[in-house]
Design a protein around this nucleic acid. Structure first.
Lengths: 258, 258
DNA sequence: CGTTCCCTTGAGTAGTTTCAATACTTGTGG
DNA sequence: CCACAAGTATTGAAACTACTCAAGGGAACG
């Protein structure tokens, strides 16, 4: 499994994580090749640099190769985080069909991205309907994650919400082969965590202390240490099925044709 | 404009509202025809009846012809509403690419739906790339609405949240030609409104009273009376651009090819 | 005409925000 | 290497918002 990942990353260094753990198993070798060749250029970004801007008419999209990105909506001068992307995510594929984005996408910490012109995506979509459906699927995953965030905000308290964020990122990193044994690096400040959880920085500090006391998970300086992931998951009643990884909602491997 | 709508509804009685006010202007006449012919059967549903079920392997999708639908996620026995659909919405198009849904879709009040087999959608997508992109666009609209709901839950208080729901539905109904002069019917209970706003039924009752006092908008027995939409919009700082209707984020009419 | 569901109101409690003060961390330049 | 500044994190106390529990009123349906 892990060696499979290594092999794929060697062949597809920029897109080897795309849909990994989800429908990558339904991709033909030729399709992986095509996706890899979509990337026209690679860039390194520093934390906070924009990947895509609200309202800009864009002619290219971006895949996140390394690092994280956040989706941000401005309101009354305050930036609100409404989404978080991990390596392998085709972060502004929506811009291809929407033409203009309703929000900003920013690098979170240092990141490496690949750019793809919309003209090339168009070609691929017109000629390879199966691959087109996979790209569509990728954007629908983001929508499913959005729905879970809505649920999280409707249903959980601050401590549970941040636990949910940790559980989700942990699972998503796992799926793309970046899961660590007991924690991972996530370069967010408490104020940013608060923004994602619909609370204040001060209250987030208290929520994190409660998490520490009750589950043993510590978040300091952008690093999560989580000795007992099961306790964390139980704390926020985390059910990962919305991520469409192996399990309940996924169809038997490769069976995407019907 | 209104007569244009009447004409289209006469020719396309089931799908004449699909993408209306958004990219319908970029649809060729032939494409509208194809979409209309996708519908294989029509059904009437009573309030609460399921349109699609979480986890079910589905071979057809649904377009909402009349009435409303809600997206629901169950948790600890409680149903949480994470989305609301209006006539013209292709409510479970995501099921086509996802194969199984992560949530339930239920009729809200009496509704009329049209069923489309996935096999037919597949045919259309494989043969008509432009139409495929429009269908993709439609699912991305839902994602944009989800993001706005996240923002709403992060940023607004209970009274503003419910005002936001009203503003959004008002605008969406307008776009599909169902806008009333000063209000509309929306068969929700206060408990359901509360669920969408991440609060309790009791608190929703108070929030609605506050809304009544401060904006003049009254919601009673599933009907919104809104003598001053501008006041309501200002109350929750509603910015409709995320709906991709005419305005900021929409490209000049019909200019979807590039 | 009564049952049921929905809405409203009150009072006490829990959770969250705000403001303010203090400490820790990191990077910069002396 | 230290001093300093800026950003980040923690804590306390008071104010506020929202939740829970409970009771009563109203509309709709059979």
């Amino acid at each position: 499994m892990a060696s499979n990942l290594q092999r794929e990353l060697q062949r597809f260094p920029r897109t080897g994580r795309f849909l990994r753990g989800r429908l990558r198993s339904a991709m033909a070798d030729q399709e992986m090749q095509v996706v890899e060749e979509l990337i026209e250029s690679e860039h390194k970004l520093a934390g906070g640099e924009p990947i895509a801007r609200r309202g800009a008419e864009c002619s290219s999209s971006t895949i996140l190769v390394e690092g994280f990105a956040i989706r941000v909506i401005e309101r009354r001068g305050h930036a609100h985080i409404v989404g978080l992307q991990v390596p392998g995510d085709f972060v502004d594929l929506p811009a291809f069909a929407l033409k203009r984005l309703d929000h900003d996408i920013l690098a979170l910490g240092e990141a490496k991205i690949g750019r793809v012109s919309h003209a090339r995506i168009r070609q691929v979509i017109d000629r390879q309907p199966h691959l087109a459906r996979l790209l569509w699927f990728a954007t629908l995953l983001d929508a499913a994650i959005h729905r879970e965030w809505i649920l999280k905000l409707e249903d959980l308290n601050a401590a549970q919400r941040v636990a949910h964020v940790f559980c989700e990122i942990c699972r998503r990193l796992d799926m793309v082969g970046l899961g660590g044994p007991n924690g991972f690096s996530l370069p967010l400040t408490q104020a940013q965590l608060a923004s994602m959880c619909g609370t204040t920085a001060v209250h987030m500090s208290r929520a994190l202390r409660r998490l520490r006391d009750e589950t043993g998970a510590t978040f300091r300086h952008g690093k999560l240490q989580c000795p007992d992931p099961a306790a964390l998951a139980q704390f926020c009643e985390f059910d990962p099925s919305y991520l469409y990884g192996p399990g309940e909602l996924q169809l038997p491997g490769g069976d995407y044709e019907d």
